[in-house]
Design a protein around this nucleic acid. Structure first.
Lengths: 134, 134
DNA sequence: AGGTCCGCAACATCAAATGTTACGTGAGGG
DNA sequence: CCCTCACGTAACATTTGATGTTGCGGACCT
């Protein structure tokens, strides 16, 4: 698995589920298909479960399936569930002594937040159903 | 210095230069002010030089200064000069055997590129002069 | 000539993401 | 009832990209 591909792992899995919603999948199955480890799958999908995009069941017939129809899951739902912040201003000094730095942070943070909001808005317009190719 | 703060290092330095455009700064000065290493500064600013945002001079009175007025340098210029791709789809399989994967890649890549374009467009609307606080 | 600065390459270090192992818990099936 | 299968989670190992460091050569000025 490649770096920061949690988003792709999530989308790939959701897409397959969108095609065959009734089939129950185990984390081992998913991991093998995605070329990664079952624990990694559980970690990622666990975040989607917390966001009510997926349901998981233990025991013999256990595994994962969609918590709601694929057309009601947007890319933004997934993005937010995974707590991704592509544009986020990865922490800056709280109270920088440099006045230029203060001015810069204020302005740039504002611009970046604006961009992040636009990004999420755009992601909200595309659903898993549109992405799964059928 | 914190992770992926090349953008902040660049903006901070450019902002200072916008306030005092005539002052020549050495990479050592800049590094100390930014809490990092002169070589790191040269690496980052070197990219800005290639993009004609900065000029550098060797020797005694050497150092760095703006290559053009701060009001003609936008955040997009800096972003592109640093070759940042916040939203970029960090490489995917060229020819995945999985048809769902193919469909997914096509769709998602399109959406992400659209977002990246919007992002750059927004960054292009703000200049260093507006950011430097004076 | 000598000092100061950038340019660059090679190596070292650090931190985040990912991968792995291990063990606990709940849900069936025989 | 016990055994197996599946998830949930914590702890640890590994990998990888970013950053930091050292060293040396070239340019420029006095």
């Amino acid at each position: 698995m490649k770096r920061n591909s949690r988003l792709y792992l999530a989308l790939h899995t959701l897409s397959h589920m969108a095609v065959e919603p009734d089939r129950m999948r185990t984390s081992a199955d998913i991991a093998e298909h995605a070329g990664t480890n079952p624990v990694v799958v559980r970690r990622v999908l666990g975040q989607l479960r917390k966001a009510d995009l997926l349901k998981s069941e233990k025991g013999h017939a256990g595994g994962w399936r969609l918590a709601r129809p694929a057309e009601k899951i947007s890319l933004a739902d997934v993005y937010i569930a995974l707590d991704e912040r592509m544009v986020g201003t990865d922490e800056v000094d709280d109270d920088p002594s440099c006045s230029v730095e203060r001015a810069l942070q204020k302005k740039v943070t504002g611009v970046l937040e604006e961009i992040e909001a636009t990004l999420i808005h755009r992601l909200g317009k595309t659903t898993i159903l549109e992405i799964c190719g059928k």
